[in-house]
C-alpha cells in the first residue's frame, strides 16, 4: 500500500507524520511515498486536516511527530523546487497579473531578462494572454486562480502542492480549470499533491486517492486510480471512473455520516 505507482523513485516520503495543536491531535501516523511523476489526491471530511498536512509537506507548518522529506531533504521550511497553489488564490491585490506571476521568480533571484521571458510563457500557458496588465479585482475568480497557477508553475517546481485550488470558483469554471490543469500537467508531468473535498476531482486528478478519516485523522484507505492518461472529458464517462468514484464515496461516507451527526463538545 505504501508503494508508489510505476515503481519509480519517491520524491516525497512521509514517515509517521503527525500534527497536534495543544490538546487537538489533527492527524497522525501518516506513512506514504509520492512518486516523481505521480499525482496524489488527498480527500477527507472537512476539518480532517488535509490542508494542514499539505502545509506540513511544504514546510510552512512544523510536524509534531515523524518527518516529511522531499528529495531526501527534511521539510522544516519551504524550499526551492516546491510551489503551492492556494484555495483563496493568494494574489497580491496591488500587483498586476504580470507582477503576481513574476513574484516567485523575483524572490528566487531570477535576473530581470529571464523574468520578462518566462512570465509571458506561463501567462500564455494558463490562457491569460492579454490580461497581463489587469489587477486581480478586475478579473474573475477563475482567472485569478489561473494567475495563481501561473505563479506557481513559473518557478518550474518539481513538486506542486494544490490546496483545494478550485474550491472557491463556481462549478462550471471548476470543470474548465480541472481539464486545463490536466492538459498542463501532461505537458510537464511533476509530482503533485492535490487536496480536494470533491470525489470526482480526486478521481479525475489522482493516480492514487488517499482517504483521511477519523479523529485524529489517519490514512483510512489508499485507492489506486487506474484510469488511462491523458485524461479528459471522456474519462468522466468511463464505467471505470464511476466504479472508482463509488469506491472513494464508500470509503468516505460511513465516516462522513457519523461526523455529520456528531455533537460538538
Amino acid at each position: 500500500m505504501n508503494d508508489t505507482t510505476g515503481g519509480e523513485r519517491p520524491r516525497i516520503v512521509m514517515t509517521g507524520a503527525g500534527k497536534r495543536y495543544d490538546a487537538l491531535q489533527v492527524f497522525c501516523d501518516i506513512d506514504l511515498d509520492v512518486g516523481e511523476r505521480e499525482v496524489l489526491a488527498i480527500i477527507g471530511p472537512s476539518g480532517c486536516g488535509k490542508t494542514t498536512l499539505l502545509r506540513c509537506i511544504d514546510g510552512l507548518l512544523a510536524l509534531s511527530a515523524g518527518e516529511i522529506r522531499i528529495e531526501g531533504e527534511r521539510m522544516v521550511a519551504p524550499r526551492e523546487g516546491v510551489a503551492m497553489v492556494f484555495q483563496h488564490f493568494g494574489l497580491f491585490p496591488w500587483k498586476t497579473v504580470f507582477q503576481n506571476v513574476a513574484y516567485g521568480l523575483k524572490l528566487a533571484g531570477c535576473p530581470k531578462a529571464e523574468i520578462s521571458a518566462r512570465v509571458p510563457k506561463y501567462i500564455n500557458l494558463v490562457g491569460l494572454a492579454g490580461f497581463e496588465g489587469y489587477y486581480p479585482y478586475q478579473i474573475s475568480g477563475g482567472m485569478q486562480q489561473r494567475c495563481g497557477l501561473a505563479r506557481a508553475l513559473s518557478v518550474e517546481p518539481r513538486v506542486l502542492l494544490m490546496d483545494e485550488p478550485f474550491g472557491a470558483v463556481d462549478a462550471q469554471t471548476r470543470e474548465i480549470l480541472q481539464f486545463e490543469l490536466l492538459r498542463i500537467w501532461e505537458m510537464r508531468p511533476t509530482t503533485m499533491v492535490f487536496v480536494t473535498h470533491s470525489i470526482d476531482e480526486a478521481v479525475l486528478m489522482g493516480d492514487r486517492v488517499m482517504v483521511l478519516q477519523g479523529r485524529p485523522s489517519r490514512v483510512h484507505e489508499i485507492i489506486a486510480v487506474d484510469l488511462p492518461r491523458p485524461r479528459d472529458r471522456a474519462t468522466l464517462a468511463m464505467p471505470r471512473f464511476a466504479a472508482l468514484r463509488e469506491r472513494v464515496w464508500g470509503a468516505l461516507m460511513d465516516d462522513a455520516r457519523r461526523a455529520e451527526f456528531e455533537v460538538k463538545r
Binding site: L60, A83, H88, G90, Y103, L107, A108, V155
Partner: peptide, 12 residues
Amino acid sequence: PELIEVARAFRS
C-alpha cells in the same frame, strides 16, 4: 494572513 503565507511559501 494568507498573503504572508504566500510570501513564506515563496521563501521570502
